[in-house]
Amino acid sequence: MSRIADDATTAWIRRYHPSADSAVRLVCFPHAGGSASFFRPVSVRFAAEADVVALQYPGRQDRRHELCVEDIGVLADRLSEELGALSDKPTVFFGHSMGAVLAFETALRLEERGAGAPRAIVASGRRAPSCHRAERVHQEDDEGVIAELRLLNGTDAAVFGDDELMRMALPAIRGDYRAIETYTCPPGRRVRCGITVLTGDADPRTTLEEAAAWKEHTEGAFRMQVFPGGHFFLIDHQGAVNAELGKELDAARATVS
Rank of each mutant, 00 (worst) to 15 (best):
G114W: 02
H31Q: 02
R190Q: 13
R150I: 06
E49I: 05
P129W: 08
G84Q: 02
L83Q: 03
G229T: 11
L79N: 05
S35Q: 11
L152E: 11
A147E: 09
R205W: 00
A202E: 11
R253T: 00
A8H: 15
V226F: 09
A158Q: 14
A32Y: 01
V52C: 08
R192C: 05
M166N: 13
Y16S: 09
C185H: 14
P228A: 06
A251P: 04
D176R: 00
H231I: 03
T218F: 08
T155A: 15
P204E: 06
A85R: 15
M166Q: 14
A103F: 06
A11M: 11
E140K: 09
R113Q: 01
Q225V: 09
E81Y: 00
S35I: 09
V191N: 06
E111P: 04
S35C: 11
A157E: 15
I13P: 08
S130G: 13
I180D: 07
V24Q: 07
A36P: 12
A23M: 09
H96G: 09
G33Y: 05
K215H: 14
R178G: 15
L67H: 04
L170T: 03
E148Y: 04
F93V: 14
R15P: 12
G95Q: 07
R126C: 01
T155P: 14
T218V: 05
S130I: 13
H237G: 04
S43T: 01
T155I: 14
E219P: 00
F233R: 06
D236I: 01
L198F: 03
L67E: 15
